[in-house]
Nucleic acid binder design. Sequence first.
RNA 1: GCGUCCGUAGCUCAGUAGGAUAGAGCAUCGGCCUUCUAAGCCGAGGGUCACAGGUUCGAGCCCUGUCGGACGUGCCA
Length: 602
Amino acid sequence: MCPYGSCCKFPWVFPLKQRQTSRTQCFGPTGHNHMHRYETAFAAEAAAALDLPIDNIQGHVRVPEPERGDFSLPCFPFAKALGQPPVKIAQTLTEKLSQSQRFAVAAAGPYVNATIHPEALLATLIPEVRQLGDRFATSDTGQGQTVIIDYSSPNIAKPLGFHHLRSTMIGNALTRILGALGYTVKGLNFLGDWGKTFGLLAAIYQRKGQRDRLEKEGIAYLLELYVEANREREANPSFDDIARALFKRMEDGDTDALELWQLFRDISLKEFQRVYTRLNVSFDHYEGESDYRDGMDALIETISATAGTRIDQGALVVDMPYGENEPPMMLKKSDGATLYATRDIAAAKDRWQRYAFAKSIYVVGGEQKRHFEQLKRALDAMGDAWQERMVHVSFGRVHGMSTRKGNVVFLEEVLDEAVERAREKMTAESSGRDIDIDKVSEEVGIGGIVFGDLKNLRTSDYNFDWEDILNTKGFSGICVQYAHARCSSILHRAGGAPGIDAYDPSLLVAPEEVALVKEIGRLPAAVLAAAEGFEPSRLARAVYEVARAWNRYQQAGNADKTLRILAEDDALRTARLALVDAARIALKQGLLLLGVAAPEAM
RNA sequence: GCGUCCGUAGCUCAGUAGGAUAGAGCAUCGGCCUUCUAAGCCGAGGGUCACAGGUUCGAGCCCUGUCGGACGUGCCA
C-alpha cells in the first residue's frame, strides 16, 4: 500500500489539459511503482520540514541530471511564503533532512538535491519486479471501465500504405497499455467501406474490369482500377456522375451494385488481415461505415428533432452554432446521398449504447481534427453529454512517401525490406547460436519498424526516409530487443534465474547496477504517462533508457572483469543474475506493451 | 484570406507544470572485442532554441508581432 496519502482512481475522466492531480497519485493498490513512491516520499519529507502542504511541494520536484541525484527541489517558489531567500531555504531544508532514512540530501545554491540510499531500493524493487513478472508495471486502476479504441480503420480497395502504420500501431499500443491498467478495452477497426469511392470503383469495373485479374491479383488490381477511375474522372467529368449514381444505387439497395461492393470488400479485408497478423495486431470487431447505411433516415429525423437541421445550398446540415467561416456539418448532399459525418454520428451513438464507455478513442490523423470537433459538438447539441468521453487521438502526417512506385510506399514493402536486412545481419553474425532465423528476423525487422514509429511523439509529422526507417542503431527497437536478448542469453548460460529471495542485495554496489535498477523502477510511471496522454512514445523512451542502462552495465564487465555478471563468487553471481532477470522482465514488458516482439536470442 | 499546429546541433527529433551548464540518435573524428552476442560501450567536436519585443527572481516553454512551413477551410473519407 502506498504510505503517503490515499491511492486514487486513475485520473482521466477529465480533459487531458487539466493534469494537476496526476503527480500526487499512487498507482493502484499494489503500489508497485518504486521510483514514484520515492519521489512522493521526498516531497513528503520536504513538506514536513518546511511545514508546507505536500501539494505545494510535489509539483516542483524535478528529475535532474544523474550526477546531481535522483530528485531535485528548486526553492524559489517558497521564498514568498516563508519570507526567506531561496538559498537560505535550501540550506535549512538540507539540514533538516540530513537525518533522512531514505535520501542523501545536499544543497546546491537554491536547489536541494536528493539521492536515494540504494540499499532499500535494491532490496525491494528487484524481488518485487521478479515476483510480478508479466504483471510488472500493470495495475487494476481501470477495473470495471470500458474503453473502446477505433484504430487502423483503412479505406478498402487500396493496399495498406506506410502511413497506415501510425494509426494501427498507436492504437495497438494504447490497447495493450490500457489493458495493462485494468481497463476493458475493445479494439474496433472501422473500415472506410462506404461512399462515393465505391461508386467510382464499380463504374470503372463495369466498364473494363477483368474478373480473372481481380481474383488473381486482388487488392493490387483494385488499386490499379482506382487510379484509372480517377484518371477517367479528370478526363471526362460525366464519369463522375455515373459513379455518383452508382453509389446512390448501392445506398438504395441495388443487388447487383452491392454484390460488386461486397467482392471488393472481401478481397481487401483478406489482404489487411494478413498484414495485421504480421504486425501482431488484432481487433475485437471489424466494422464499417456500411453497417450504418440503413438507419440514416431515422437518425436524421432524430437529429432534426434535437439539434435541428436545415437546408443550406441544397444540402442538409446540422443546425448548430458554428464559428466564423466554418463550414457546416453536412448530413446529406444535394442529391440526397449521406456523407461520412452522418454515419459517424450513427456509429458514435451505437458505440455508446453498446458499451457505455469510459472513453471512446479515435486514433485518426490530424487532418480530421475539425471533423471530430464537429462530431462532438453535434452530439452535444443533440443532448448526448457523453460526447465528452470521446477523444480524438490525432497524429502527424508522414511526408515524402512517393519514393518508389506510384504515390505511396506500401506497408508490406517496408516490412519486407526490414525483415530482409535483419536476416542478412543475423546470418552474418549469429553463427554458432541456436536461432530460428526466419522467426527472429521477422520479429526484429518488424519490431524495428513498429518501435521506430512509436518512438515519435504522435502529433508530430515525420518524413519517410528508407535509411532512417530501417536504421537499427541507437534509439531503436533493435537496441531494446538486443538488450532483452542479451539478458535472456546470460540467464540461459547461467542455467536459469536464481530464486526470488535467494540473493544478497548489498552485493550490488556498482554505479551501473544502481542506475539500472532506477531505470527499471521508472517504467510503471512511464506506462501510466503513456496512457494518460495517449502517448506510447513515453513508454518507448523509458524502455529505451532501461536498455541503455543495461548495455552500460553489461559492457562495464568487458572493461572491468570484476563487474562481470557471471562472477566466480556464487553469492555475487546470484545477486547479479537477480538484477539481470529484473531487467529482462522490464524490457520484455515494455516491448510487449508497445506491441513489439521480445526475442530471447538474436 | 481565415483557422489549427509547428520552427531546438549538419540531419531526425526529445525537452514533461517556467527552474541549474538545453539533451538523445544519425552523420563526422578518436578509443574499446583471445574470456557473459560490438545490432553494444566510452570520449570529442557541433546551438544567437526562426526573428523582434513583452511578462517574470528566472523563458526553448507564457503573451504580442514578423518571417517560414504543414494541415484544414461544404456536396471525398
